[in-house]
Computed example of a mutant assay.
Amino acid sequence: MPDPETDLETRIARLEAESDIRRLKARYLNACDAKDVDAIRACFTDDAVIDFPPIGEFGLDGLIDAFTQMAATTPIVDVHQGHNAEIEVEGDAARARWNLGYATYDPRAGSFRLLANFYNDRYRRTAGGWRICYTRSEPRAIVDGVLAEDGIKANWVAG
């Protein structure tokens, strides 16, 4: 009897799922940078839980509301970069840990924030493909700063 861990079809299916999840996370991060709320919504299950300390825990509508307000009212520019994915697939469920590098810039004040954190995500395979059903951001380092005429002023906020 073939070992399920070495069965070629099982291994290929797991690799395809991992690839799909990587593309999903890339779509999500790119949609965040573009403040594309429809694309953000499409990355999640309807019952998704978002846990972003110190902001708190909320559902998908809370995340969409935040991005809708930013897109409509601010010229803020964001860059989300997810790296070093550790993905574990078990059937129609998966978990992943990502290292996120994040930078945001507000040209109105010349202010910026640099953030290093881990994302701990859970995914569910749906009829429409893999979707994020839970995400938790764990900040590791936060630096806030301002671009001033006499140079950059920055403060280590947390970490």
Rank of each mutant, 00 (worst) to 15 (best):
E18W: 03
L114W: 05
I132M: 10
C133S: 11
Y119L: 14
V77E: 15
L15A: 08
A48H: 05
Y119R: 03
R41F: 05
I132Q: 09
A72R: 15
A94W: 05
D78S: 13
E9I: 08
I142C: 06
W156Q: 08
E57N: 05
T68L: 12
I152R: 06
D78G: 09
F118I: 05
L15H: 05
W130V: 03
V77R: 10
A71I: 04
F58L: 04
Q81C: 14
D78I: 06
T73N: 14
L63K: 01
I40W: 03
T73S: 14
H80Q: 08
T10I: 11
D3F: 08
H83F: 12
D78P: 02
A48T: 08
A148N: 10
R95H: 13
P75M: 07
L114T: 06
R136W: 01
D47Y: 06
E149D: 15
W156Y: 14
C32T: 06
L24P: 10
R113Q: 14
P53I: 01
C43P: 08
W98L: 08
E5S: 11
V143T: 15
V157R: 07
V79H: 14
R122F: 07
H80Y: 13
P54W: 13
G159L: 03
Y28K: 01
L8G: 03
R95D: 11
I50C: 10
P2E: 11
E88Y: 00
Y28M: 03
